[in-house]
């Protein structure tokens, strides 16, 4: 989604500069929530305030961008859900899901593998956190608690 956003916002409409876009993506990756939303919200605000409008207009701009980026999902998922709950036990749907579900597990696994990179794992301490959280998550400890604890341990371990 990010290349699409960059093309429209930077190249076609010239709402924000390339360096603005890069730092927006960096911030969107570190704050909670889907990256597409975070960048849409941020771009909405930056684009409007770049045009010289005050903060309130900027907030409206970001709200408009966020709603716009979520609208297709709303429409599609509403249609698909009502359809899916009806055809859930259809043999063709079952047949597709029979292959799709194991494939999704593969996708999740490769997402995890791709995240094991130099940006996320900087030294042995990262690996200690990884192993501890991995074991703890399998012991059915609340993931939100684990995220909070790992944030605290990052604060304590790194200087």
């Amino acid at each position: 989604m990010l290349p699409l956003i960059q093309h429209e916002v930077v190249n076609v409409h010239h709402w924000i500069s390339v360096s603005d876009f890069t730092s927006i993506v960096a911030i969107s990756q570190t704050t909670p929530g889907p990256i597409a939303f975070n960048s849409a919200t941020y771009i909405g605000y930056t684009a409007v305030s770049n045009m010289g409008f005050p903060i309130i207009q900027g907030i409206i701009g970001s709200a408009v961008c966020t709603l716009a980026v979520s609208l297709p999902s709303f429409i599609i998922m509403t249609a698909v859900c009502s359809f899916f709950f009806k055809v859930k036990n259809n043999q063709w749907v079952r047949a597709a899901l029979l292959v799709l579900k194991p494939a999704i597990i593969g996708l999740i696994a490769s997402a995890a593998l791709m995240l094991i990179n130099n940006a996320n794992f900087i030294d042995y301490k990262s690996w200690i956190i990884f192993v501890v959280v991995f074991i703890a998550s399998r012991k059915k400890i609340n993931p939100i608690l684990l995220i909070l604890l790992s944030g605290v341990s990052g604060l304590l371990l790194y200087h």
């Binding site: 570190t30 995890a112 995240l115 996320n120 956190i129 790992s150 605290v152």
Partner: peptide
């Protein structure tokens, strides 16, 4: 510093329930 701790934890949380 907080995110240095959170980033590997997120990877572990994705891999954990696989």
């Amino acid at each position: 510093r907080i995110f240095k701790g959170i980033r590997p934890a997120v990877v572990a949380l994705i891999a954990g329930p696989l």
